[in-house]
Every structure is written in structure tokens, then in C-alpha cells.
Amino acid sequence: MDVLFLLIPLSVVLVFAIGAVFWFALRSGQFDDLEGPGFTVLLDDDAPGGTDDR
């Protein structure tokens, strides 16, 4: 059971590490569009931009 005294603090540190990773992901805009990327795989890369009006 003594290993718990190592593992539990370690898990706390790990949670903070995961939080930091997510923070960077969020800051770099990876969560800004949660729907668009799902559609991009269905589209050809060389699709003409004719219908895209923006």
C-alpha cells in the first residue's frame, strides 16, 4: 500500500500536466471549429472553390 503515497501525488501532477496540454490545444484554436473538420475528409482536396462564397 505504501506505493500509494507515490502514486496519488503523481496522479495529481499528471492531471495538471493534462490540463496544461489541453490549454495549449485550446489556445492554438484546435477547438474553434468542432464540425468543419468532420466534413473536410468527405471533400476532395482539389475541389473548385466556385461554390464557396467567402
Partner: peptide
Amino acid sequence: ERRSALWRVFVAGLGMMQVMMY
């Protein structure tokens, strides 16, 4: 606003999961 809301949700979610483990 959206980013900060998402970040708050994530912090709470992560905390919740781990606290539940304990």
C-alpha cells in the same frame, strides 16, 4: 468567450474525474 467557457468546462471535468477516482 467560447474558449474560456470551454476551458472552464475542461478544468471542471478533469477535476471531477480524478476526484471521483479518489
